[in-house]
Design a protein around this nucleic acid. Sequence first.
DNA 1: GAGGTGATGTCATCATCTGTCATAGACTCA
DNA 2: TGAGTCTATGACAGATGATGACATCACCTC
Lengths: 193, 193
Amino acid sequence: MPRWPADSRERLATAALDLFSEHGYGAVTIDQIADRAGVTARTFFRQFQDKEEVLFADDDLLLPILLETIAEPRGPIEAGTLMEQALVALADRMQPAHEALRQRQAVIDTDVALSGRELAKQARWEGAIATALAERGFRADDASLLAAIGFALFRRELHAWLADASPDAAPLADRIRAALPSLRTILDATTAS
Amino acid sequence: MPRWPADSRERLATAALDLFSEHGYGAVTIDQIADRAGVTARTFFRQFQDKEEVLFADDDLLLPILLETIAEPRGPIEAGTLMEQALVALADRMQPAHEALRQRQAVIDTDVALSGRELAKQARWEGAIATALAERGFRADDASLLAAIGFALFRRELHAWLADASPDAAPLADRIRAALPSLRTILDATTAS
DNA sequence: GAGGTGATGTCATCATCTGTCATAGACTCA
DNA sequence: TGAGTCTATGACAGATGATGACATCACCTC
């Protein structure tokens, strides 16, 4: 029998998300999170770099999926297709966690610093994608712009997916597949009064 | 004669940027900033909401320029042209502050939280642009994607402009004008091995 | 010149985050 | 089986970030 329960990190993450949802991010102290998880504040800071990090710590597990999907296909491939495969793979991995992601996003949306950290994470991913595209032979400028455009579209669909709490909400991957074609024509065809 | 010099806010902002550049953002305390500005830490927090804010406080003066440029032109106008006019107007306003912006960006690039706050600000601007485009009659989905793409390009050119310290560096507006046409074709024409 | 105003200082306090050392169950190896 | 090591955690002290309450005093208005 271990001296302490072995999952302090998970308990801290769960306690934090619940408390943030109940009382708001700013109103929750580290001591309260630690209390609910049955540890001390010092243990919180051993598991997570800072208070924000408890909401972002596990995100980087998803990045390798993106990069592998881009690097994997053999032979020539069109950029849009490659981007679609990568974003759909990411979407499939996020799909089962819909409810937890919705709760997390609701917390993030209430705080500028948290929104910034989320955007910084996405920017880091975007850069990694651009690098992966460049390594496949795309021009560096084209790769970075493609990654930026793809992620802009992903953010839009992710936001809509997270906002939709209904049980028969369209899967994120379907939303992304549906949205991609509009990219091809919007720039040339869009005019307004 | 006033009891204190009248420009404590400007002195604090200048002292903060200088100290951040000299010693790094994290190594500088509010007390040090306040000391150099000749006030107390309490006055710093009366002028700026928090330590980060001293780097971002005046940015929102630029947003109205963007929105006016989008709302102003009369008659039908193509989306890409409208986006170009808005981004070029913003670029022209930023041009004289090249050196200060370079110094500021160098500080921001050293800290994840600061980078996030910068991205959050740009996201707020992006949303405002999308709204302005929608009010001109563009479909809401198209407007948000157009804004996202325009800003992705703006970020890329801004980054290159800020990285270029040479005295005859190309103006930001020229860089943006030069980069825009590539947007039109990249999605359809880009293929790699 | 009496009183109000506003920017600032002073003091107290809470929250975030870090460094350091102690503790005790788990593990290893002879 | 017992000594030594490892490791997650607790306990405590302290620096920094941030806020609230109240005092101060030059300036302004009447």
